[in-house]
Every structure is written in C-alpha cells, then in structure tokens.
Design a binder for these strands. Structure first.
Length: 470
RNA sequence: GCCCGGGUGACAGAGCGGCCAAUGUGACGGACUGCAGAUCCGUUUCCUGGGGGUUCAACUCCCUCCCCGGGCACCA
C-alpha cells in the first residue's frame, strides 16, 4: 500500500513518489535561537521527527536537514536590548533546544545547517536574482520584486491584490511594491554584518533556506516541512527565490504543514501572556508524555495545550506504559510452554501491525495509529488473564517496540529494564534484617545466597550490612 | 475585505457514501483482591453547527449561512 502525503501545494493527499528511489531529501524550518524553546516548536519538531522515523521504517533513506537561523532581526533586537553578544544568545538557546529535543526523543535530524555558514551561497543566490532582473538593490538593501514571479501565491492561495499591506508590519517605503521582501539588509550600527557586493549587511530571513537546500540537495527536493504560519510569506518566498533562480519546478515536491499549537483557543504569544516554554513544561511532565500529547492528534490539526489536557495525556499514556511493562516482564520470565491465549495474541499482533501501517500510510495518522496500539493493549491485558507464554509475549513485545520506534514512544521503559540497583539492594538488605531479627535464618540466608548467585555479596559488618558488587 | 483550516458524545479526538461513528480520559455499576495498584466486563439514552441540494443511501459530496482559529508580507 502506498504512502499518502497531504501536499499543501495541491491541497490533496498524494501518493508519495520520491525523486531518487529510496532516497528522501527532507528539510524543515528550524529555530531562531533568540529565546526559550516554546511548545509550538516542540509540536512541530515532534511531528517531523515522526515523519522521518516512519519513512525510515518504510525503508527510505532519509536525509533530514534542519536550519538554524543564527542571524535575524529578532535575535539582533534581543542582542541590543540585553546587551549580550548575539553569538552568546545563539549558544545559550541552541543548547537548550538540543536538550529539549532529546527529552522529546527527537532524534531524526541528520544535519543542522547554520545560516551564517552559508553566507557565500546566500550572496551567490542574491547575485543571481539581481542578474536575472528579479531582485533590485536600494542603498545597501536588496529586495525581491514579487511581480516578476508569476507563481507568487501558489502555495498559500494568496492573491496579491487582495492583501492588506502593512496589516501587521510597517511597509518599507523603499520597496517598489509592499509585497516585495528583503533578500539582503544593510548593516545598522552595532549589528553583525558580512561583506557583500551591496556593502556590509546580512541575509534576509527567507534566503538562507534556499541557499542551504540548493547547496545540499540541488534545485529540487522531496519534502519541506514547517508549521502553517510559515506558509505565507516564508515558504512562498522560498519558492519564489528558488524557482526564479534555478528554473526547476516545483522547487519542493511535497510541502507539509503542521497545525498550530493553541492555548485556550488562541495562538500562543508572549503578549497574550499564555506563553509556554518547553523547559517549564518538562518540569511538570515527562518529555514522552508531551510527545504522546502531540501525536495523539493528527499533525495537521491545531492542538489546544492545557494542563488538563496534559494530565489526561499522562493518564492515557500511563495505561500503555503499564501494559508495556507487563509485556516486557513476561517476555523475560513468563511460562515456557504454549499457553491458552497465545494464538489470540498472535492474531491481534498481526492485525495491529497491518492497521498501524494503514493509519500511518494515510498521511501519518498518528492518532489512528495510537488507537491501534490501545486496542492491542486491551487485547494484551485480556490475553494475559487467560495465559500467555514467554515466546508469545516476546513476539508481541517485538511489534510494540517497532511501533514505539516509529512514534518515538516507550523509549524510557524500554531502556529502563530494571529498577535502580542501589535502592533495590537496600530494600533486600532491610528485609533480610527483619528476618534475622525474627531469627528466620532460612529467609535471611536465602536472600544472601540468591544475591551471591547474581554477583552481590552481603557482609554483616559491625556498623551494619555492607553490600559489594563483584 | 481576501486566502487557508475547522465545527463530532461530559471532555479530548479519529474515521467513513451504507456495515457498531474509533480510541482515550472522566463518571457510574460489577468482577478480581489481605491492603494498595493494575486489569477485565458492563453502562454513560443513536453525539456529527443551521438550512437547502445530489443520491436508493450523507457526518462524509455540492451550495449557502452562522460560529471558531490561523495568515495577510520579520512567528515553529
């Protein structure tokens, strides 16, 4: 069954057909590290991490590139009002970003491309656009003339004449049309800058992405991801830059956009006072719970974030974790012989595998995929009441682990294996002491002997019991 | 104003031209149980924004209206 991907460009679910066989080039707009990582970032990057994981599961070799916008207006603004060097800000927030991504099991990115590492490529692209008469320079700035590109608006459906110039941002008077956007911005006092044919300055926001992807992937690639609010103007500008420059259309074959993260039914904004930084959320909830929360809705739907919603996600996910533990413990030390419910469980596992893939093939329907896992979990619990053998448990666990790897869930329980050794040994020592007090030496010796078998020696010293690991 | 997206049970949230409208949470009852927890079974009156149309059949397709969210040129 073919994978179907919803393509914003065509507003349809399309069969996923790559450019180069099993190779997939994928790019996702990364962050501008000028402030804390917020929940919207988390949702977006969990989404595309899942996309890359599933593609790899399907056998594709995914080259996933994400940019880091390490020079940009908001970053400069932050630098100017904090008095800190922009590079320090970048270092601080990118470190936080990486830590947060790790907590969310976001691991699929192969390469982070930093905007400032691509200044020569950016300048080359701008020069190319100027040479073609598509871009024009005005005292040190370079603008893209939107009227020169007839595909403008094809991604977002925007109609140039209908737009309201300056609805949110003041229009630069030097632009030929309010629709034009900056490719290069001249340096203002105190700002970071690089040499260019137009004088010292820095790149506009949109150009780094095309400089990076054209350099790494060439004039066309498979998937571009991002959140919906980037669709216009950012992604529209990318198309305009790349297609005008290279002539290859479409620049990106599949445009994927994730729904917004809302808070109380509104977009999250510092100014609305509903801003949630991920590190703060991680103090209240495990990263995997957060990840589960995001994947528990379709990636294109907006999600309303709330503490109640998170509490529910936590309880819900816990149900799966409980079943996971039941299963993994039985897989280690369950009964050997065939058991009553083995066949039923095997059938359920096979059915779940099929349904899971059908759900994921349908434009990465993680909500449906998770429902499949819940159904399997119920079956697992029912089967265990009837009796399941060790090997059937192992087969089932194997499948659950595959689901977990695709969705980036169950990673912690899986790694966990055993409870913390020290604490466990302390408890055994305590129980043995209780037994010795009762002069129940059969039990106390049993504990000591069994521990010795697994390499733990107990010594009754004057000051108390000592344990040693061999 | 224009361009997108959406309105489904107490709540969250899928799906599909007909087959029980998933799944989870919550609530209630029962089973199991030394306690606790988990689990299982059942219930939570047939819930698809309004109106029209197409069709043997619409929550699903079309039109229209209402409501909500996003974008409109420097937001993941």
């Amino acid at each position: 069954m073919p994978l179907k991907v919803y393509n914003t460009l065509t507003r349809k679910k399309e069969d996923f057909v790559t450019m180069h066989g099993r190779r997939v080039n994928m790019f996702v707009c990364g962050i501008t590290p000028y402030d804390h990582v917020h929940m919207g970032h988390a949702k977006t990057y969990v989404t595309f991490d899942m996309v890359a994981r599933y593609l790899r599961h399907k056998g594709y070799r995914v080259f996933y590139v994400q940019n880091v916008t390490d020079v940009e207006d908001r970053l400069i603004a932050r630098m100017l009002d904090s008095g800190r060097d922009w590079r320090d800000l970048v270092a601080e927030f990118i470190t936080e970003y990486m830590a947060v991504m790790e907590a969310l099991n976001v691991t699929a990115v192969n390469h982070f491309a930093w905007a400032t590492d691509y200044i020569p490529e950016i300048i080359e692209q701008i020069k190319g656009l100027v040479k073609k008469g598509i871009a024009y320079a005005v005292d040190g700035d370079v603008f893209y003339d939107v009227t020169k590109f007839d595909g403008w608006g094809k991604l977002s459906g925007m109609i140039v004449e209908e737009l309201r110039p300056g609805a949110r941002v003041e229009v630069d008077k030097r632009k030929r049309s309010p629709a034009d956007f900056a490719l290069w911005k001249s340096q203002k006092p105190g700002e970071p800058a690089w040499d260019s044919p137009w004088g010292k300055g820095r790149p506009g926001w949109h150009i780094e992405d095309t400089a990076i992807t054209v350099s790494i992937f060439g004039p066309q690639y498979d998937i571009h991801g991002g959140a919906t609010e980037l669709m216009f103007p950012h992604h529209e500008a990318e198309i305009a830059q790349a297609e005008a420059l290279t002539g290859v259309k479409p620049f990106v074959r599949y445009w994927m956009h994730g729904g917004m993260l809302m808070i109380g039914g509104e977009e999250m904004h510092k100014s609305l006072g509903n801003f949630w930084a991920v590190p703060d959320a991680l103090k209240l909830f495990d990263g995997e719970v957060l990840r589960f929360f995001f994947l528990n809705a379709h990636y294109r739907s907006p999600i309303d974030f709330s503490l109640e919603g998170m509490e529910e996600a936590k309880r819900s996910y816990q149900r799966l974790l409980d079943t996971y533990q039941l299963l993994s413990q039985s897989a280690k030390r369950g009964s050997d012989g065939p058991m009553t419910a083995d066949a039923v469980l095997d059938t359920a596992v096979t059915a779940a595998k099929t349904k899971f893939e059908e759900a994921m093939d349908d434009d990465f329907n993680t909500r449906e995929a998770i429902a499949v896992i819940f159904a399997l979990a119920s079956q697992i619990n029912r089967s265990f009441e009837a009796g399941v053998s060790k090997t059937a448990a192992q087969r089932c666990l194997g499948q659950i682990d595959i689901f977990g790897d695709v969705l980036g869930l169950f990673q912690k329980v899986r790694r966990q294996g055993l409870v913390p050794t020290d604490a466990l040994l302390d408890i055994l020592v305590q129980i043995r002491e209780e037994a010795r007090k009762r002069k129940d030496f059969a039990v106390s010796d049993l504990i000591r002997d069994k521990l010795k078998e697994i390499g733990v020696t107990l010594e009754d010293a004057k000051e108390g019991v000592r344990w040693k690991l061999k």
